[in-house]
Structures are given as structure tokens and as C-alpha cells.
Nucleic acid binder design. Sequence first.
DNA 1: TTAAATAATTGTCGAAAATACAATAATTAA
DNA 2: TTAATTATTGTATTTTCGACAATTATTTAA
Lengths: 231, 231
Amino acid sequence: MYRINFNEFFTSAFSVDCMLFGYSQGQIKALLIKRAMEPYNNFWAIPGDLVYPDEDLDEAANRILKDLTGLSDVGLHQAQSFGHPKRHPQGRVVTVSYFAMVRIEDFNAKASSWADEISWVPIHNIPVLAFDHNLIMSTTIELLKQKLRVEPICFDMLPDRFTLNEFQQLYEYAYNQPLDKANFRKKIKHVPLLAHDEKQKMVKHRPAKLFSFAKEEYKTKVETSDYQFKM
Amino acid sequence: MYRINFNEFFTSAFSVDCMLFGYSQGQIKALLIKRAMEPYNNFWAIPGDLVYPDEDLDEAANRILKDLTGLSDVGLHQAQSFGHPKRHPQGRVVTVSYFAMVRIEDFNAKASSWADEISWVPIHNIPVLAFDHNLIMSTTIELLKQKLRVEPICFDMLPDRFTLNEFQQLYEYAYNQPLDKANFRKKIKHVPLLAHDEKQKMVKHRPAKLFSFAKEEYKTKVETSDYQFKM
DNA sequence: TTAAATAATTGTCGAAAATACAATAATTAA
DNA sequence: TTAATTATTGTATTTTCGACAATTATTTAA
């Protein structure tokens, strides 16, 4: 390999697209930005940026996330790479897509340097996007759904303290089908949750108990037994 | 985004690493090549090549596969991308790893233009490799194992006609644990297999029936019912 | 204060799947 | 013909899944 003049290959750039998913009002949503420059001016798009010459991919994804939301220490997952030669009108740009889960209520995304506008859009209602971002988005959403089945990433979207109904409704939205309440509770019997004394407030019916995910307990459980998260 | 001088970013190259997995003598094996040039001369490595300027990633992976094995129309799966700035000593090269399953007996890999030597190595005994190929390999093997659980890709490694024991032993090797013969057969009751009249020959014991995977039947089953392959 | 309404929570039962283990049948080699 | 080996089938027990019913706790409106 590398039989041909080496230098003619070093003419490409790569970018990282960083999808954020959150959960509010019973819907899983993705963060979109409205582009404020050409190409695709005024189109909705996935936040992303070129990777610096001496930057690792994960590093770039974290930088973009930090710039956009102020958050660091968020679990980033690499999804897929897209490299159609004509996908970017200004040159050869291969993009690597990442995604992360955040609590929508917990932060204000800074649109400033990125776009005029940002918006949380339900993943079942994604509009037409810039570049090949619809392909990237739909591919990544499928991956997200798959990971929701086998990894406890839903808790990164749910509020720190949540009701079992909120937990259930998240999966109902993801799978796009109603689930039986009683059976759902049986299914999650093995998921390490911490029950709080605290209850829902300001609701006009019997308030539900609040739970949070016992992350440490989960880790040791995975390591010591052959438990596997499964929904 | 793209706030900085656009052109200084177009100084990178892309490569595609193409892992081949096969199954023989009760072991899942990966194809390695022995490099015949610097850097990492004489190291074992994953077959790969730079991506041409006007080539899509999938296209490049298919080209490499064809060059190396003569095979086309093989199901290629994108695994992950690796982009540490120093991973390649001769410049910034981001690599996208792919993998595919083949029947080891069915072809002779052409080492000629690629390397002095090629070798099928059991995935549980991978030696020290060139570049960051050990990282790529182990990451991809994990992904392979996961996909074996939920997609019928094992049949791309098994011979066209196989015994149920061969089928079972593949999973025993992948999961690294023995499985109960009777229970295994119950578990695969729903996998669409075609039973042949033909039997094993040249064995010094009762010959086993031969089966093959009913691909078309599988497809319609997935489309029409909510069946999911699961091991 | 009380009843109606709403939602949380728990329980039951049969069907299906997973697990452990045993028994039987077919074939080869000596 | 028999011992050895392996394929194949069966049984019984436990665990999980799915549909549905019953009960309990709390709020709001009368």
C-alpha cells in the first residue's frame, strides 16, 4: 500500500458532527442549529466543526460540545463516518458523527458563535437539513435506539430524579409503542435504582415516588455478575 | 463554524482498514498481512489503504477487499474511526475500519501486491501489530461479537452447508463458553434453516445432517413479522 | 368532610422461553 | 457383532413475558 505519490493524498479535511439528544415533554429531541453562513445558509444542521490538525477526534467532539453547551464530562459516543466525495461543496470533508445525551433543562445552549438560532426537535420530526445531515441524523438515531436497549444511557437524558412513568414514557417514545405499566416495572426490577423519600410535587393527582439511577451500583453489578442492562 | 482559513485544514489523508474474519478449525480468525515496507516493516498489520480523493469510504473498502481477495459482493460493515494525531508517522491519517466475513476455504488471498505473507490468526491470539492496529483490532472484535448476537452474520463465515455442531461451536468460541447442545437446538428453532438430505462424509462416527441458512426466508420473516435474530 | 377522579402500585395467571439433565438412535471401526 | 462416538430428541423445573385485574394513595371539587 501507499504505492502512489504520498503527498497527493494529503488534501482532505475532516470534521466532527456532534449530535445532542435530550428528553422533554415525553419526547426525545435532537439539538439543531440554524446555519448563519454559506453554504446552506439558513438551513437547519447538526452542530459540527472541522478537526484541528493536531487534535484527536474525541477531543474535537468534546471541544464542540463544550463550545456549544458549556458542558464537559459528558459521555460521548462515536457513531459513524460519512465520506461521500461530494458531500461538502467546498472540498473533500469526511465527517465523523458523535452523539451525547444531556438534560435539556440543565443548560442553555449558546447559539452565539454557531448560529442565529438553535432548537430542540423531536427525533420523529426532523426537518430537511444541510449537507447530508439527514442521512447522518437518521443513521445516528437508529444507533441511539439500539443503544437504549442495551446500555443505561437513558438516565443521561432523564432528570436526576425521575418517576417510573417518565422512565417508561421515554421508552414508549423511542420504540413508538405503548408499554404495559405493570410489566415495565417488573422488567426494571434488576436495574439498580435508588428510591427517594421525596415525591412529585405540584401535580393534581397522587404524586409518584422519585428515583435516581445508582450508577456506581450498576458498575459493580456489571463487573461482578454477568448482569446486562436490557430493555 | 469554518471561521479559520479554510485551506489549512485540507492537509490530511484518510485510510480504510479492512478486517476479514473467517471460521476454521473451531476458531474465528482474522486475516493479517506482514508489511513489506516502512514504516513498521515486517510487522503484522490489518490490510488497509489510503482512500482516493474522489472515492467514497465504502467504495474504498470494497476496492481493498477486491484487491486482496478477489471477492466482491461481500457484506461490509463499518466499525469505527481512529484519528489520533500521531497514529501515523508520516502525516495525519484518519482511518475508518471496516470488517467483513468470508469463508476461509473459498478463496486464496493474494498477498502479492500487499505483503510478503498473510495469515489467518485466531481472534483470541492477536500478536503485536503495526501502528495502532491492536486498538483497532480489539475494538472491532468486540463489535463483531456484539453483531453476532443480533445479526445472522455467522453464516457468512460458515461453509455453505454446515452441521448444527459447527454452528454451535462458532458461538462457543465467540462467547468463550460451552453451550448445552440440546438447548442450543431449541434456541435456533426460529432461525430459518434449510435442512438437506445430504450428510457429513468421511467422519468416523454418525454423520450429522447438513443445513444452510435460508437467507430469503429470513428477510421476509424480518419484514413481515417482528422476528429478531438473537443468540 | 366527603365523594369522585386520577394515577401509583401490586397481584394473578397462563404462555413462552431458558436451563439442567437424561434417554435414545444412527453410524463407524474393530 | 459389539464398543465407541456422536447426533438427535425428550422431560421436568425454573424463569421470564404479556395481558389484565385489583388495590391503594392522593388531589380536587362539591
